[in-house]
């Protein structure tokens, strides 16, 4: 399954024994509102519907009713030099769970944490300004310690 190049065998230990498959499934927040029992993934473009179903049912023991997959074109954008560049293509999988199950995408950036971060930043900035003012007092004696003064 893997297309990775593993290092050449060398004598002695430790050997590289990690299994790195090409298949991955990334849980993402859907761009459009979905029914409560639908989970959205970005998956490897090589994965089929059956792969997605088996991945969830066999490894994570999640019951799956239906899988719908689409290959999406990567977004294009203009770079600074004036030509168009394109992101990698990706496959998106909508997995339908039994209707009595619900999935809600977790709030990864809760408001409290963000507010705390903003507050910290403001404090830091005010301290920096304070220090700058202190430095400006001795503008004519740059690099000299303060005890040199009269």
């Amino acid at each position: 399954m893997s297309t990775r190049w593993y290092p050449i065998f060398r004598r002695g230990n430790p050997q590289l024994r990690i299994f790195l498959p090409n298949f991955f499934m990334k849980l993402v927040k859907p761009e459009n509102p979905q029914p409560k029992n639908v989970v959205t993934f970005i998956v490897s473009t090589e994965m089929t519907k059956y792969d997605v179903r088996n991945y969830l049912e066999k490894i994570y023991k999640v019951p799956v009713v239906n899988v719908a997959t689409h290959n999406r074109l990567g977004a294009t954008k203009m770079c600074d030099k004036g030509y168009v560049v394109k992101d990698e293509d990706y496959k998106i999988a909508y997995v339908t769970l039994p209707k009595d199950l619900e999935f809600q995408f977790p709030n990864l950036f809760p408001k409290d944490a963000e507010e705390q971060q903003d507050k910290d930043l403001e404090e830091l900035q005010s301290l920096q300004e304070q220090q700058k003012k202190e430095m400006e007092k001795h503008w004519d004696r740059q690099g000299t310690p303060t005890w040199f003064g009269i």
Binding site: N32, P33, Q34, P35, V38, N66, A68, Y94
Partner: peptide, 9 residues
């Protein structure tokens, strides 16, 4: 109804 019919295939 809170979602688009596309979500129902």
């Amino acid at each position: 109804p809170l979602f688009h019919p596309r979500a129902l295939k």
